[in-house]
């Protein structure tokens, strides 16, 4: 099927495979269609179907709330049923040649490791090597459950043959239930990767500020991995704020200490506990980390006051935490949107 996209700066066309989402086909072909969450929620990939037939695989996706016409579709959920023409209300940005276009891959679930009572580390071996940017995510589809979930990569390497994810068990979450269940190791899963714009690149000559809540720390680990590997912290500072509820929700603290050990003067890591005071035993167990009581954006706001020059911020976590952080970064820190990178998943 051929799909033509009319954007404010001209028309682009590409081939769409049977069953392939229009968004994925476009991005795969180098057409930079607008998107953020790629999972039907944010509405950024909204387009108007001008001709042809397209079907949504999730007709009730929350991104529908932005629809203004019967002909509106979400490109991330829609499959072309014959040749289609769609219209997007924005100008398409030119594709950056250094960034890998997403493609469909197969993977096998390998090592799973419990990190906390409701967080699991999951590794997936890929059927071919993949390049991605630090901070990007993959869409994962598991057998027998409709719809893809987005998980940020924890690792960072070129030509990666394995992707590491962090999965939080959600009440009633079919995919997380499955991933926490029995008989999962060795199972084939489908992926579309790499996706996402909340990326870190050492070419950005900026201090790094990471504000993460819960499993939102995943992408930050990838960013820290690359920043350490590229010696970014030899010249620039890193400020990491990791928000959790209580000590039993903590994970990756050893890994964060290891990053710190490489750049003790330039990299600071603060763990914020929202629901309980910091136990002396916790602080004593991780002498290289700083602990504080409070909501992560409030703790970050307090400790970052007056240090926002040349900062680029990366934010990930539950939507209320991301929202509160964005408010603070725009209003108090006065960072321009170009220096605030975030993924809003719900």
């Amino acid at each position: 099927m051929k799909v033509v996209v009319n954007a404010r700066n001209g028309a682009h066309d590409f081939e769409c495979g049977p069953g392939e989402k229009i968004l994925h086909a476009g991005l795969r072909s180098g057409v930079e269609l607008p998107y953020e969450c790629a999972t039907g929620t944010c509405g950024t990939c909204k387009a108007r179907l001008v001709s042809g037939r397209a079907e949504s695989e999730w007709p009730d996706a929350p991104g529908r709330r932005y629809f203004k016409s019967e002909a509106d579709v979400l490109l991330c959920q829609s499959v072309a049923r014959d040749d289609c023409a769609v219209e997007v209300g924005v100008a398409l940005k030119p594709r950056q040649p250094t960034v890998t276009a997403p493609r469909a891959l197969g993977g096998v679930v390998r090592a799973r490791r419990r990190l906390t009572h409701d967080v699991m580390a999951v590794d997936v071996d890929l059927d071919g090597p993949l390049d991605f940017e630090a901070g990007q995510f993959a869409l994962v589809t598991v057998p027998g459950i409709a719809g893809a979930r987005a998980y940020s990569m924890v690792n960072f390497e070129r030509r990666a043959e394995r992707l590491s994810f962090v999965v939080k068990k959600k009440p009633g979450g079919a995919v997380s239930d499955w991933l926490f269940g029995q008989g999962v190791d060795g199972t084939l899963v489908g992926l579309v990767a790499p996706l996402g714009h909340a990326t870190f690149h050492p070419d950005a000559r900026k201090h790094v500020l990471c504000v993460a809540g819960g499993s939102g720390i995943a992408g930050m680990m990838s960013i820290l991995s690359l920043a350490c590997h590229a010696a970014h912290f030899a010249a620039w500072q890193g400020h990491v704020f990791f928000g959790i509820r209580t000590a039993r929700d903590a994970f990756f603290l050893d890994e964060l200490e290891a990053f710190r050990a490489r750049y003790p003067a330039q990299l600071a890591v603060t763990v914020a506990l929202s629901d309980e005071d910091v136990a002396p035993s916790l602080a004593a167990g991780y002498p290289a980390l700083t602990f504080a009581r409070g909501l992560v954006h409030a703790v970050a706001g307090e400790r970052m006051t007056g240090r926002f020059a040349d900062v680029r911020a990366y934010v990930a976590g539950p939507p209320p935490m991301v929202d509160a952080s964005l408010r603070w970064l725009l209003r108090e820190a006065r960072l321009p949107p170009a220096d605030i990178r975030y993924d809003k998943f719900s």
């Binding site: 929202s274 629901d275 409070g294 909501l295 409030a298 209320p320 509160a324």
Partner: peptide, 13 residues
Amino acid sequence: LEEILTSHIIGGQ
């Protein structure tokens, strides 16, 4: 309400 709840009632801010 969400902000009042998380920031102030629970978070103290």
